[in-house]
């Protein structure tokens, strides 16, 4: 799932401090799971903003709500009748949700309330780790189910480099060397022969390098 972290409160304060009617919109999708932008976080942010405006002696209306998903128009449309009330909106969705909201409410000022980070897993509550870079052409079948693009700091397809040390990455002792993980897994699976076969340069055109991406599924479209 998409992982995000709340933006520092002072950054959000700096953006909304000159408005008087602000709506905080959480998203019940990915950002709720990583506790960065769900209904709960929307409430906390709204309360903090109310405290800020009140102590500053300013009359302000700060409300909060949350939508099932901000990456779908049907859910964003649920805001249509109350949007006019507000001067600005803080969206706690990932970057997709923030943009889709801005697209749908073209004349409204929309601020992001979270920093969207990566596609990852929940190792524990409060510990989220990247696993996928959405390169558009999955090679996990060849690499023992461990992605070198997401898990090697140099996204090497023929790793590990000479900097791995005691199973850790050269850039940080807390990051496992992705290629040592791959090597060990291939060994476990009896597929070490894969390890000595050079992997050709990757076609990055399905990744970010190919420009903004679109999926067209004719089988699903009317």
């Amino acid at each position: 799932m998409i992982k995000a972290v709340p933006k520092p409160l002072e950054e959000v304060l700096g953006q909304v401090k000159d408005f008087t009617k602000v709506l905080i919109v959480g998203c019940d999708g990915c950002v709720t799971v990583c506790e960065a932008g769900g209904m709960k976080e929307a409430k906390v942010l709204a309360s903090a903003l109310r405290l800020y405006f009140t102590q500053a002696g300013k009359q302000a209306q700060i409300d909060e709500t949350s939508l099932t998903r901000q990456c779908e128009k049907e859910y964003l449309a649920q805001l249509s009748d109350k949007m006019d009330i507000y001067d600005a909106v803080v969206s706690l969705a990932c970057g997709c949700g923030v943009q889709y909201m801005a697209e749908m409410y073209n004349n409204k000022i929309i601020y992001p309330g979270v920093d969207t980070c990566f596609l990852g897993v929940n190792e524990e509550r409060g510990l989220y780790v990247e696993r996928c870079q959405a390169c558009g052409r999955c090679i996990l079948a060849e690499t023992g189910g461990i992605c070198p693009i997401a898990r090697c700091s140099k996204r090497m397809l023929n790793g590990p480099c000479g900097g791995s040390d005691a199973g850790k990455c050269e850039i940080n002792k807390d990051i496992p060397c992705g290629w040592e993980l791959i090597y060990e897994r291939l060994k476990t699976l009896g597929q070490l022969d894969r390890f000595e076969k050079p992997v050709d340069p990757k076609d990055w055109s399905t990744s970010r390098d190919g420009g903004p991406r679109t999926i067209v599924r004719e089988d699903l479209r009317i």
Binding site: K154, R155, M156, L157, N158, G159, C161, P198, V199, D200, P201, W204
Partner: peptide, 8 residues
């Protein structure tokens, strides 16, 4: 960048 790695 790391478009290629050393082996590539």
């Amino acid at each position: 960048v790391f478009d290629l790695d050393s082996i590539q």
